[in-house]
Design a protein around this nucleic acid. Structure first.
Length: 422
RNA sequence: GGAGGGAUGGCUGAGCGGUUGAAAGCACUGGUCUUGAAAACCAGCAUGGGUUAACGCCCAUCCAGGGUUCGAAUCCCUGUCCCUCCGCCA
C-alpha cells in the first residue's frame, strides 16, 4: 500500500509515477473519497467528543448524588447522530481502503522507463553459452530419453503442468535444494527457515497477492480462507507482520514448494517443466532499515547470481522496466539463465525491493534507536533460485551427445559423488 | 471430535459499568549521587489516526466483529487464537 499521506499531499506526483508503470490512478475518485473521509471524520470525532464530555458529566453528577436528568435529556438524540455519522465514515473508509489496496507501488527512480519486457535493460552478463557439436535437445527430450522425467504419468495422477521425476533427476533436484540452502546459510548470512505452505488471506494481503490476484492462487476447500502458497515470500515475509522489530536486519532463506494456478497463461510454456502448477523454490527474504534497502537489493541479487556462477550456468541480469515490475515492487532485477534447448535466456530468479509497500500493509516496523519511535521496515525478496528451472538449465547446458547429463562439480558431493546421470 | 480455562502497553501482571489510556513490577531513556561503574533515589516512557506553521488540541484502540447503555477493559452474542484434560492420529 502506498502512504496515504503521500497520495493526499502529492497526488499529481503519484499519478505520474504510477503512469510510468501503466497504471491509471483515478485521481478524481480518490479526491472525492478523501474529501468525504475528512469531513466525516471531523464530524464523527466532534460528536464523539461531545458524547464523552456529557457522559463524564453524568458520571460526576451521579457520584455527587446530584440529579443528572438534564444532561441525560441533552444527550438523548446524540446517539443516533453519532451512529449515522460513524456508519457513513466506515462506508467511505472501506471504499477508500479498497481503492488504496488496488494501487501498485511507485517505481523507484532507478527503475527504467518502458512498457513491457521488451524494454527491460540488461545490467550485466556472465558466462558464455556452450558450443555444441551435436544437435541440442531440450530438457523434455533429455529427461524422457533417460526415462527419468515423465509428464504423461503426472497428467494421469493430476493433470497438465505437473511432472514426475525419478532416479538421478529426482536426486539432482534434491541436491540443488541442499546446495542452495547451504550456500546462503553458510556464506551469505541467511537464517534457514521452514514455514507453513498454507497461508490465510491476511498474509496474502500483507505481501500484495490479495485482493487483486486471487485467480493466480489455489484456494483450499476449507472452513477458513486458506490458500496454497504461490511463493515462500508470503509466509516468510509475514513472519514480521504486526511486529515491532528490535533487531535488524533479518535475513531468511526458505525452501518451499510453490503453487500457482497459471490462469491466463494457457498455451504458454506448455512443454516441459518451465511453467508448472507446482514447483520448488529456495527463497531469500530480507527485512531491513529503509536507508539500507537498495544496498540490500544489490547484495541479494548477487547472492542469487552466485548460485548460477557456482553451477557455471551462463546468465544475464535484467533491470525490469516500470511497465514490467510486479504489483508490490519498486525495483526488480530478473536473472535469466541460458537455455540451449530454447536458444534463449529465461527467467530463473526475480529479486525485488518492495520498500515500505508490504510493510505498511503488514504493519511491520522496527524501533528507530534515534527517535525511539516505530518506523516501517523495508522488505525484499528474491529467488535463490527456482529449483525446477535450475534443473532444466543443468539438463540442457550439461547434456552429452549420448543423452546423458553431467553433474556440475559443486553438486557432486550432494549426489554421493555421482558425476553423470545416464 | 468432547469438556473446561484464558487473551490487558516492549515483557510480566492488577483492574467495583462512571475523571482508567489503564495500578504495580521488569526493561528502556534522562537526571542526582560516584573518580568511573553498580546500587539507591527522582523523572520520563503505548500504538494508530485527525487537525495545526508549530506548541498543542482532539478521536480511536485493553484479541476481532457485533450488541446493551448517557457511558464498556469491565455486561451479552459471534468469531479467531492460545492453554489444560479426554478421544483420535503422522
Amino acid at each position: 500500500m502506498l502512504d496515504p499521506k503521500l497520495l493526499r499531499h502529492q497526488l499529481e506526483f503519484c499519478q505520474q509515477q504510477l503512469a510510468r508503470r501503466g497504471f491509471q490512478l483515478d485521481v478524481e475518485k480518490f479526491s472525492t473519497l478523501e474529501n468525504q473521509r475528512k469531513a466525516l471524520q471531523v464530524r464523527t470525532q466532534a460528536l464523539q467528543k461531545e458524547r464523552n464530555a456529557k457522559s463524564k458529566a453524568i458520571g460526576q453528577a451521579k457520584a455527587k448524588g446530584e440529579d443528572a436528568s438534564d444532561i441525560l435529556a441533552a444527550v438523548a438524540d446524540l446517539g443516533d447522530q453519532l451512529k449515522a455519522a460513524e456508519e457513513q465514515l466506515h462506508a467511505v473508509q472501506a471504499e477508500l481502503n479498497a481503492l488504496l489496496m488496488g494501487i501498485p507501488n511507485l517505481p523507484h527512480a532507478t527503475t527504467p522507463d518502458g512498457e513491457n519486457e521488451e524494454d527491460n535493460q540488461e545490467v550485466r552478463r556472465w558466462g558464455e553459452p556452450r558450443q555444441f557439436d551435436f544437435e541440442v535437445r531440450d530438457h523434455v527430450d533429455i529427461g524422457e530419453g533417460l526415462g527419468l522425467l515423465d509428464f504423461e504419468t503426472a497428467a494421469k495422477i493430476t493433470g497438465s503442468r505437473f511432472a514426475v521425476m525419478h532416479g538421478g533427476i529426482a536426486r539432482l533436484h534434491r541436491a540443488l535444494i541442499q546446495f542452495m540452502l547451504d550456500l546462503h546459510t553458510q556464506e551469505h548470512g541467511y537464517s534457514e527457515t521452514c514455514v507453513p505452505f498454507i497461508v490465510n488471506a491476511d498474509s496474502l494481503r500483507g505481501t500484495g497477492q490479495l485482493p487483486k490476484f486471487e485467480e493466480d492462487l489455489f484456494k483450499l476447500y476449507h472452513e477458513h480462507d486458506y490458500y496454497l502458497i504461490p511463493t515462500a515470500e508470503v509466509p516468510v515475509t509475514n513472519i514480521v507482520r504486526d511486529t515491532i522489530l528490535e533487531k535488524m536486519p533479518c535475513r531468511f532463506v526458505s525452501h518451499t514448494p510453490c503453487f500457482r494456478s497459471e490462469a491466463g497463461s494457457y498455451g504458454k510454456d506448455t512443454r516441459g517443466m518451465i511453467r508448472q502448477h507446482q514447483f520448488e523454490k529456495v527463497e531469500l527474504v530480507q527485512v531491513v532499515k529503509p536507508e539500507d534497502s537498495y544496498q540490500a537489493l544489490e547484495e541479494l541479487t548477487a547472492h542469487a547470481e552466485e548460485v548460477l556462477k557456482r553451477l557455471k550456468l551462463p546468465f544475464r541480469t535484467m533491470a525490469l522496466c516500470a511497465g514490467d515490475i510486479g504489483f508490490s515492487s519498486a525495483k526488480t532485477y530478473d536473472l535469466e539463465v541460458w537455455l540451449p534447448g530454447q536458444n534463449k535466456y529465461r527467467e530463473i530468479s526475480s529479486c525485488s525491493n518492495f520498500e515500505a509497500f508490504q510493510a505498511r500493509r503488514m504493519k511491520a516496523r522496527f524501533r528507530n534507536p534515534e527517535s525511539g519511535k516505530p518506523e516501517l521496515v523495508h522488505t525484499l525478496n528474491g529467488s535463490g533460485l527456482a529449483v525446477g528451472r535450475t534443473l532444466v538449465a543443468i539438463m540442457e547446458n550439461y547434456q552429452q551427445k549420448n543423452g546423458s547429463v553431467q553433474v556440475p562439480e559443486v553438486l557432486q558431493p550432494y549426489m554421493g559423488g555421482v558425476s553423470i546421470i545416464e
